[in-house]
């Protein structure tokens, strides 16, 4: 039986609630309805007191989670879309993220953010918010790209004693499948070499991993073998694995779906340039979405975000520099 990325997220929550009576889920429509994407489908039947529909109050939802966490609970907050977490921004960055440092009392909350673009979703149901949250001290920010990671990293997120922003990509929900869920996996904070190669390194994460793997397959036809690094978590970033790969290849392309100003790809480049300048054979490249809001129409949307084709084009340039 195969499991989807979405089912893995549901299963991780079920397992976490079975193992720990302090875990509960709070979010809009997560109860009987099972959530806008069905990530909590059926959970209320097994845990009638621990899956609760929340009012449309992202600020209060996160505040409630923080209060519950202070008292020893391990709340999971489902944002209906990552985009709406902006309403809870203050609680996330100022209350949750500062709590442990200020008071010494941990704040173990998991914020699930259905993230990223899908065709026709437009400016307010497509955003990738990881860079914003990664900027603030006191938060862990993860971006699983595979079914296995969605499962094991969500379980680990719930167990961590810190606030975790769990960016799950909506485009991966249904079509990504795995034969079975892992019992062991890499921990949060470790990147993974998703494809080995020697001519260039692509550092990426979340849905862009799959576009990058396609591009790597395309350029392999031209005789270039590209290594693809899946960051898995963007805060912390596994700089050692990135530098190790660049040491092998000498060339770097960082790919992200988020907006171009600052962000994860900029962070990757800045670390490689400042810590591994001598490893580089040519200037590194970044590829991001365009610096406009995310368009509604698929014709525009496809051109707004990086795709296998645009990554292939960037790689073609990079390997010939």
């Amino acid at each position: 039986m195969s499991t989807t990325y979405l089912a893995a997220i549901r299963e991780a929550q079920a397992v976490a609630m079975r193992e720990d009576p302090n875990v509960f889920i709070y979010g809009q429509d997560v109860g009987k309805f099972g959530g806008a994407f069905k990530a909590t489908k059926g959970l209320i039947d097994e845990f009638p007191d621990r899956v609760m529909d929340a009012p449309i109050s992202e600020d209060a939802m996160v505040g409630l989670a923080i209060g519950a966490a202070i008292e020893g609970m391990r709340p999971i907050i489902e944002m209906q879309f990552a985009d709406f977490s902006s309403i809870g921004l203050n609680q996330i960055i100022n209350q949750a993220a500062t709590h442990y440092w200020r008071t010494g009392v941990p704040c173990p909350i998991t914020l699930r953010l259905p993230s990223g673009g899908t065709a026709g979703s437009g400016p307010f149901h497509s955003q990738s918010m990881e860079a914003l949250y990664a900027h603030y001290p006191g938060l862990v920010v993860v971006t699983p790209a595979t079914v296995e990671d969605a499962y094991s990293m969500l379980l680990e997120s719930i167990q961590l004693d810190d606030p975790v922003v769990f960016c799950e990509h909506k485009l991966l929900y249904y079509h990504l499948k795995a034969d079975r869920l892992p019992t062991v996996n890499l921990p949060i904070g470790k990147a993974r070499i998703a494809r080995s190669g020697r001519h260039a390194t692509v550092v990426t994460y979340s849905a862009m991993l799959h576009e990058s793997l396609k591009a790597a397959a395309m350029i392999a036809e031209d005789g270039f073998h590209v290594e693809v690094v899946d960051l898995r978590s963007v805060k912390p970033i596994d700089t050692d694995t990135i530098l190790g790969s660049v040491a092998r290849t000498g060339r770097l392309l960082a790919v992200g779906e988020a907006f171009p100003w600052g962000g994860v790809t900029a962070e990757v480049l800045s670390r490689v340039v400042s810590e591994g300048f001598d490893l580089l054979d040519c200037p590194p490249i970044r590829l991001n979405a365009k610096d406009t809001p995310i368009p509604y129409h698929p014709n525009l949307w496809k051109a707004h975000r990086p795709t296998a084709d645009s990554i292939y084009a960037a790689l073609s340039e990079l390997v010939r520099k």
Binding site: F24, D49, R50, S57, D59, A60, M61, V62, G63, L64, A65, I66, G67, A68, A69, I70, E71, G72, M73, P75, N90, Q91, N94, Q95, T98
Partner: peptide, 22 residues
């Protein structure tokens, strides 16, 4: 408290929810 006014009310509510669940 943090400085951001209004933000403590939901935290106290969450503490109470936890007490009820426990």
């Amino acid at each position: 408290m943090i400085s951001h006014l209004g933000s403590l009310v939901s935290v106290v509510a969450g503490m109470l929810l936890a007490r009820r669940m426990q």
